[in-house]
């Protein structure tokens, strides 16, 4: 059976290609044979769903969800926005997961040996489901910049990693969000993997003073767009179905 809908062909021009020597690690981790293009079957238009009872009440509060004997150090920050699809429709009840370094630029990860200290009160990960409007929000501390091994003096701008599902497995996306005004953005080798500069701008969250909590918390706005879909009813009729 042809699914009743299928996702629009992914516009590969707005994504980084697999092989990007500016980000050296990609060289040996990038297929050389072009991807085989598949028309969507049920295997691509379906995907996992998650429910609120699978998440804990503090899962979207990175200020509290690993606090031991105090609060984490750093700028208290709200990040919020909507998950939409290419048709400008909200993506409802979809799982959004985030992870990040602490305010000093250090990850709570066994493979991170940067000299900035671990924050005993900060884990660095959170998760939430979008609501009926596709809206999500979480509270955290703004992550710090940190160096990484690419060239001898390569630094990552402050960023938060995002993982989003959508309704079908073909919409699955991992990306990174940056902060408006960060002077490291034009120097970053990971952002530079994206050939389309307007695409890179869409990864930069805008300061949202109206959403900030006075005397408490700054806010940034970051909307995410997953692939849109089209009904296949017309095609089915064309085929006499």
């Amino acid at each position: 059976m042809t699914p009743e809908y299928e996702f629009h062909q992914r516009d590969r021009d707005i994504h980084p290609p697999a092989f990007t020597p500016v980000y050296k690690t990609s060289a040996l981790r990038s297929p050389r044979v072009p991807l085989w293009s598949l028309q969507n079957s049920l295997s691509e238009v379906t995907g996992p769903a998650f429910s609120r009872d699978e998440l804990g009440p503090l899962d979207n509060d990175l200020i509290q969800n690993y606090a031991r004997d105090g609060k984490p150090i750093g700028e208290q920050t709200i990040v919020h926005g909507r998950v939409l699809d290419g048709n400008d429709r909200p993506v409802r009840n979809t799982l959004v997961e985030v992870w990040q370094a602490n305010a000093g630029g250090r990850y709570r990860h066994r493979n991170d040996s940067y000299i900035a200290p671990i924050d005993p009160n900060f884990g660095g990960c959170g998760r939430m489901l979008t609501d009926d409007n596709g809206y999500y929000f979480f509270r955290t501390v703004k992550p710090g910049a940190y160096p990484f091994r690419n060239r001898v003096n390569s630094w990552r701008p402050a960023h938060i990693h995002f993982s989003v599902f959508g309704s079908g497995f073909a919409q699955r996306l991992i990306t990174q969000m940056y902060f408006e005004g960060d002077p490291l953005i034009p120097h970053d080798s990971i952002i530079a993997t994206i050939p389309d500069k307007s695409a890179a701008e869409r990864l930069t969250a805008k300061l949202d003073l109206n959403a900030s909590l006075p005397l408490e918390c700054l806010a940034y706005r970051f909307d995410i767009v997953l692939r849109g879909s089209r009904q296949t009813l017309f095609e089915n009729r064309l085929h006499g179905g």
């Binding site: 969800n65 709570r108 990860h109 990174q176 990864l203």
Partner: peptide
Amino acid sequence: YLPETPSQTAGPYVHIGLIPNQAGFDIF
């Protein structure tokens, strides 16, 4: 149509966010 949000690498610390147990800490 709205253009899709561009992908970025999951990076070396993907475990923190998606499989925190493997990153060595218990949060959820």
